[in-house]
Amino acid sequence: MTTNHILTVENLSTRFQTPDGEVEAVNNVNFHIDPGETLGVVGESGSGKTQIFLSLMGLLAKNGTSTGSVRYKDKEILNLRPRELNKIRGVSMSMIFQDPMTSLNPYLKISRQMTEVLVEHRGMSEAEALKRAIAMLDRVGIPGAAQRVHMYPHEFSGGMRQRVMIAMALLCDPEVLIADEPTTALDVTVQAQILDLLRDLQTDFNTATVMITHDLGVVAGLCDRVMVMYGGRVVETGTVRDIFYDSHHPYTEGLLKSMPRIDRANEDNMFAIPGQPPNLQNLPTGCAYQERCGYVMDRCCQERPLLKDFGDGRASACFREDGQ
């Protein structure tokens, strides 16, 4: 089967073996990404949003295993050997993280870290590679790139480091860029700069982007489609307008209502979703959201609502959809 999806994920599940038993961090997740689009993946900590992408990049912790299928174009890449996977990750698919220092080697100059990939994967000469590295740093808005390329990671500020990360991720013209909370550790003014940069880069390079975040404001400004995760499962998907203006799932609705907004003066108590995020080790029977849901019915505690497709990429996992 050929599609124009650049990345197709089917029935992806990820489990971790822990001393206290097995934890299902990702459960039967399906989605795809088309060239040039931005997919927002929204959820709380422990919702499995990051683990999906660590699974498909082959970066899971040692005690984790994944099942299902992940296809890059038409090539199955899930559980590929590292040697095979290295031809794709960092080249056709790159990932940037919340803390840039986790993926930068503190003992190597930026120049070395950037040219290495190009020499290895593109067969460029050192000089060519350096030239491209400088051009890329320049593109992501690092002033004095030609000098600063020879500095060490710790000599950059947090925002600059994140720019370096983005430049590194884009070096080989990846077709998919996965950004895991890239702005969470940054100040708002710097966050705005980075988000602008990501928007620009997308128009320039037509890269498909995945934006993993808990901040619905970031999603609103950047994404085309949104996937909402809760307790390791997808609870709702749709276009950004669907999600923000016509959300179906009670969790999405609650999340939107509980976001504090700078453009509105709240005269009342803030809306809060009651209760705590679910404990993956001990999920209730039925819907994972039942304990916090304002619309909970008897049925929610007995069986788990399946993700119901409404066409056009719109889907929601809630029994309220059946009841209408």
Binding site: V188, T189, Q191, A192, L195, D215, L216, G217, V218, V219, A220, G221, V240, R241, F244, L256, M259, R261, I262, D263
Partner: peptide, 16 residues
């Protein structure tokens, strides 16, 4: 002014 304008608003129309 810059601080306030940099905060993302969870509403696609307004934010964009």
């Amino acid at each position: 002014k810059a601080l306030i304008s940099a905060v993302p608003i969870p509403d696609p129309e307004i934010e964009r």
